[in-house]
Design a protein around this nucleic acid. Structure first.
Lengths: 147, 147
DNA sequence: TTCGTAAGTTCCAAAAAGGAACGCACTTGT
DNA sequence: ACAAGTGCGTTCCTTTTTGGAACTTACGAA
């Protein structure tokens, strides 16, 4: 299965991965969430090749995850910002961080801690049901196919 | 940056992606969460080439996400099951499903709905702080680097 | 005039993925 | 007995994707 076929799949996992399912995309989005907006800065921070970065930015724009804003004319210069669709990926990013912190050891201390903007306290991200507040784990959930 | 270098990064996003940051891995894990355990069945369901599937299963085993259990001798036959580390990826998978359902439209109806195993009601997955129950969004959180 | 900055593009080599067929050690059906 | 089927891969070859470095274009500053 190729990338274009993946996007046409019925399963939401497959469709999600058609957007973020590669080595670089979530790293680009991480930088976007950290406020990085420009090509040069991303390239320097990420250690991605310019070629691939240009390609990913274009795909993310085409998918509506990033918006390309011109911030100067002549020479034309652009910056990339998260759209609402892009911002909605935050839980995926945070879940990934939480998992990696617990299960993929770093040589040194873990890279980042998440803090509440209100209280400054460290956060412990948990997936719950919005209505009942019940924790969501593979034991408490079943999946039903809609067909 | 190559795969091996990614794993050595300080950032937990990078370390997480060194395990699940490719087109196929999360699809393999999706099937594992659905109870699929054998090579042939995965290959048939996923439309992945046998070569790549064999490679991913090996990598996931090496990373401690799956366990390879021999279920018969002569000829030796194996099945793959999630370890605790693998099961801990459930929130990442669910966050991805929730995002794709809302933001990556399918041609037909969405593939799956998540139901509470207790009540049978549909679930609305939300990321909250385990202590305060506060919702976690990119607006309510700051990240601090630990160095 | 040369240097630096920003956002790419071009070119070529290396790595990864796709596709189909083959191998091996059984088990089952006729 | 013999052919076909099952399960889990591996091999071989082609296509796609990355990596790495240099080049381009349009400026502003020293």
């Amino acid at each position: 299965m190729k990338w274009d076929e993946l996007r046409e799949e019925d399963c939401p996992v497959a469709r999600g991965l058609s957007v973020i399912g590669d080595r670089w995309t979530m790293l680009v989005l991480r930088d976007c969430f950290l406020g990085i907006r420009r090509f040069e800065e991303m390239q320097a921070r990420l250690g991605i090749t310019r070629h691939v970065l240009a390609d990913r930015l274009r795909k993310l724009e085409a998918d509506g995850v990033l918006r390309r804003d011109q911030y100067q004319e002549r020479p034309a210069r652009f910056e990339y910002r998260l759209t609402e669709k892009g911002k909605a990926l935050y839980p995926v990013l945070v879940s990934l961080v939480a998992w990696a912190d617990q299960h993929v050891p770093a040589r040194e201390q873990s890279g980042i801690t998440l803090l509440s903007r209100d209280t400054g306290e460290p956060l412990e991200p948990t997936l719950t049901d919005a209505k009942t507040g019940q924790k969501i784990t593979h034991l408490t959930v079943t999946a039903r196919s809609n067909r």
